[in-house]
Write a protein that binds this DNA or RNA. Structure first.
Length: 592
RNA sequence: GCCCUUGUAGUUCAACGGAUAGAACAAAAGUUUCCUAAACUUUAGAUCUAGGUUCGAUUCCUAGCAAGGGUACCA
């Protein structure tokens, strides 16, 4: 329990006793470091309830608190800010509790709590993963971990977009141009191989259009009537009717892609509890639309298409089923959501990690599900995030301006290797150990770089300026962790006993204050679906620890009690770094 | 046109409506007989504009400007 919470009733009592007013809430903040004190009561808001000079109110309140609260050793007033000095005994006690809790910061789920499903990644099976997917995966995975740490059971999932005309395009191109190439025969990752044929299709398609235009066909007609496109459409019809040959090819090529994706996911350190496939859920969506039509949630236009009217909600009319009865994007999403609740009776909340270009789509989706009468529809959240842009603008696969996920991860590891070798601290380790470490550091840099930014904001990524390894970065934090482990390795004596009755150094107090905040930070990050809060907190903690490390001796400390406390502090700071980095999906090294 | 998001040092990011707007990179200067210098300590530098609400506004409201996105029987 934080000191704030325990002080709040006392402050309220004080206001009642001194001025005979009931104040509804008390505003606390950390005392700025240029003033004396640890915690500050903001007195200005009380002026609404009692007249008077804020300075005098604060002074009287300060006297009252000093009298009645043991932990408050002194106070001072600046304008309407009442700065309270908290005694070292309080901090030692508080730290002792933190130190005893070996799983500090993590809340275990209660049995009766409802679970949350977090969706992320959701790739297109025609395109290898790129930098944008990396942000999506890191965000989704991290948010899932954070929610779990805040005390809820979490299922991680993705929806795989495995059907439609675009799939047929790469299938057709492969049939025509590949001479039977496979991932095995070429050594290419399956997703890359299939991606190549998707590009190949586009090239051939463009060629055919040009030729048709040369023959005097107008552009619109040419685009529509290019033979290769028609053949792809034909293939889709065959797929939908269950043509054996087409379905077999579809399964084979999809499997190549999944195998390729699995490698990337593994390298990135993300995973899923269950996958959903669009090919399995789009039909359910159509059934639900039919039901909703009967209930009057939807209406039918003359041409047979089905719509929902959301003008009352300030939105437009939105189509949910085409005139020919085929499903649109949102039809399938309706089906998927309902399927998930059917599959997992214990979930009552879902988080969708999808880019902000789909804000409108999810607003509509959630509204539709509410109107269909699903109770859980009020607990749906769109974790909307900004795009990752290059200096040249948006990433476009056709223009070759895509930063490939696999390539980027390799590049990061290479940079880590270069820097590490230059520093030359790792001579004693085997080649295998070193490579693992380079990977940990390189990916740490990449993940932290992306996760430290507020999800809502777009990220500008300049491939020419490589990601930093110094300053507010993943490796900076990893380095601090490694340094702490080094201290702990050297502290080969029993330092477990509780320390009481010593006076604290300023830097020690700072660390304890920061440690106290950790559980609250996790809760906040879970509520706001924001890993950035964890990243920024960890940075602050590490910054404070490094300053502490540089200012005071730890192992060389002469007073044994102080030495033990400092080692304990180091231990706990290291644990918190490890825990929060785990929530970000980042590994920490024992040495670097 | 309408709707949504974002505008903070040269650059990349912070700041429940609170005190003198914090960091990092880049720039300038310092700290290794001492626990890992991927560190630490200094210096210099910013709230898009105009109004409003408030004891107090980077934060809330209104208008404008700028960037991005959406507004499709694409996903």
């Amino acid at each position: 329990m934080s000191i704030q919470k325990s002080l709040e009733p006392t402050v309220r009592n004080g206001m009642k006793t001194l001025f005979d007013v009931e104040v509804p809430t008390v505003e606390f903040q950390e005392t700025r470091k240029e003033f004396d004190g640890d915690i500050t009561v903001v007195v200005f808001p009380f002026l609404r309830f009692t007249k008077g000079n804020p300075f005098e109110i604060a002074t009287k309140l300060g006297e009252y608190l000093k009298e009645s609260v043991e932990e408050i050793s002194d106070f001072n007033v600046v304008k309407g800010f009442l700065n309270l000095v908290i005694s070292d005994i309080y901090y030692l006690n508080s730290f002792s509790k933190i130190y005893k809790n070996s799983n500090y910061g993590i809340t275990k789920p209660e049995l009766e709590d409802k679970s949350v499903m977090v969706e992320y990644s959701s790739p297109n099976t025609n395109k290898p993963l790129h930098l944008g997917h990396i942000r999506n995966n890191l965000l989704g995975y991290s948010v899932a971990e954070i929610i779990a740490a805040s005390g809820k059971k979490v299922y991680k999932t993705q929806i795989i977009n495995d059907r439609g005309i675009h799939i047929c395009k790469s299938m057709l191109a492969w049939e025509r141009f590949s001479n039977g190439e496979t991932p095995e025969s070429t050594g290419l990752k399956g997703d890359k191989l299939v991606g190549n044929y998707y590009v190949k299709f586009d090239q051939e398609y463009k060629k055919e259009i040009e030729e048709l235009i040369k023959d005097g066909v107008n552009e619109k007609e040419a685009k529509k009537n290019a033979p290769i496109l028609q053949e792809a459409q034909n293939m889709l019809r065959k797929w939908e009717s269950g043509d054996e040959k087409v379905v077999t090819l579809w399964k084979t090529m999809n499997q190549w892609v999944y195998d390729g994706f699995d490698k990337s996911y593994k390298e990135l350190g993300v995973n899923f509890d269950i996958n959903y496939y669009e090919s399995n859920t789009y039909l359910l969506g159509k059934d639900v639309v039919a039901e909703g039509l009967e209930k009057g949630v939807f209406f039918k236009k003359e041409d047979g298409s089905v719509w929902i009217d959301l003008t009352d909600e300030g939105l437009d009319e939105k189509i949910v089923l085409r005139a020919d009865g085929t499903a649109v994007y949102i039809t399938q999403d309706i089906g998927t959501a309902i399927q998930r609740i059917k599959d997992y009776a214990d979930i009552n909340s879902m988080v969708y990690t999808v880019g902000n270009e789909q804000d409108y789509h999810f607003k509509v989706l959630f509204l539709i599900l509410k109107k269909l009468g699903y109770k859980w529809a009020q607990n749906l959240y769109h974790l909307s995030y900004g795009m990752v842009d290059l200096p040249s603008g948006k990433m476009k696969s056709r223009e070759g301006t895509v930063v490939d996920a696999d390539d980027l991860m390799i590049e990061m590891t290479n940079t880590a290797r270069d820097i590490s070798q230059e520093l030359g601290k790792l001579e004693a380790y085997s080649g295998e150990e070193k490579e693992k470490l380079y990977n940990t550091i390189g990916l740490g840099a990449l993940k932290y770089y992306i996760l430290k930014v507020d999800p809502k904001k777009r990220i500008l990524f300049d491939p020419k300026e490589s990601i930093d390894f110094n300053g507010n970065t993943g490796p900076f934090i990893q380095y601090t962790y490694a340094r702490i482990q080094s201290i702990l390795r050297k502290a080969n004596f029993d330092y477990s006993h509780e320390i009481i009755g010593i006076s604290l150094h300023k830097k020690e107090k700072e660390l304890i204050k920061l440690l106290e905040n950790f559980p609250e930070i996790i809760k906040n990050a879970a509520e706001n679906l924001s890993p950035a809060l964890i990243a920024n907190y960890t940075y602050d903690l590490v910054k404070a620890y490094n300053s502490f490390y540089q200012t005071v001796p730890i192992l060389n400390c002469e007073n044994i009690d102080e030495k033990v406390l400092r080692i304990q502090l180091s231990k706990r700071v290291g644990d918190v770094i490890k825990t929060s980095f785990k929530l970000l999906g980042i590994d920490v090294p024992e040495r670097m």
